[in-house]
Nucleic acid binder design. Structure first.
Length: 169
DNA sequence: GCAGTGATCATA
DNA sequence: ATGATCACTGCC
């Protein structure tokens, strides 16, 4: 993954991930590639919906590190959420990968791809069995729907920020 | 509509 | 140590 792309802020990176491939090498060795179809941007300490809103903690430290690493956390005791850390080191942005073609929902996605919190803080690379390939051209704007993020009603003035991006296939 | 499930963080 | 909260899903 090119560093110039990973250094983008999450709101800029998120739409560029649409149409690209989320790639997984499963424990049995088979590799599958999935078209990314739904993402959300979480844009740092000023964003009340972002976990980094309350500053650096043990959990959010990964978002402050260098871009290109996975941020994976457990929610509701059962679902792992898969995020790609981006923006320059020290700027805690991340993009939540919510859906790929054929698998809708962030919890279903990680369940289907056998992704759990052991991926947290790992580099997105084939060496770790989970990576992104930028092999498609950028998706034209008229194929991208932009909406508020899902499940962030608690985020006050940021709850309706247009930071969810969906690819219309 | 709402229960299930457990890490995380603030409060103490 | 305790308790509220939670970037969700599946079943009622």
């Amino acid at each position: 993954m090119p560093k110039s792309i990973l250094n983008l802020t999450a709101d800029k990176l998120a739409p560029r991930l649409l149409g690209q491939f989320l790639c997984r090498r499963f424990p049995n060795g088979t590799v599958k590639k999935y078209v990314i179809t739904e993402v959300e941007a979480y844009v740092g300490e000023q964003d009340k919906a972002c976990h980094a809103h309350k500053g650096k903690t043990k959990r959010t430290a990964i978002m402050y590190g260098p871009p290109g690493h996975w941020y994976v956390y457990l929610i509701y005791g059962m679902y792992s959420m898969l995020n790609l850390v981006c923006a320059p080191t020290g700027v805690p942005h991340a993009v939540l990968i919510r859906s790929v073609k054929g698998i809708t929902g962030p919890g279903r996605l990680t369940r289907a791809l056998k992704i759990d919190t052991s991926f947290n803080a790992k580099l997105a690379s084939p060496d770790h069995g989970l990576w992104v390939e930028f092999s498609n051209p950028n998706i034209p704007k008229n194929q991208i729907a932009i909406t508020p993020r899902i499940g962030v009603d608690y985020a006050q003035e940021d709850k309706d920020a247009p930071l969810r991006f969906v690819l219309n296939l």
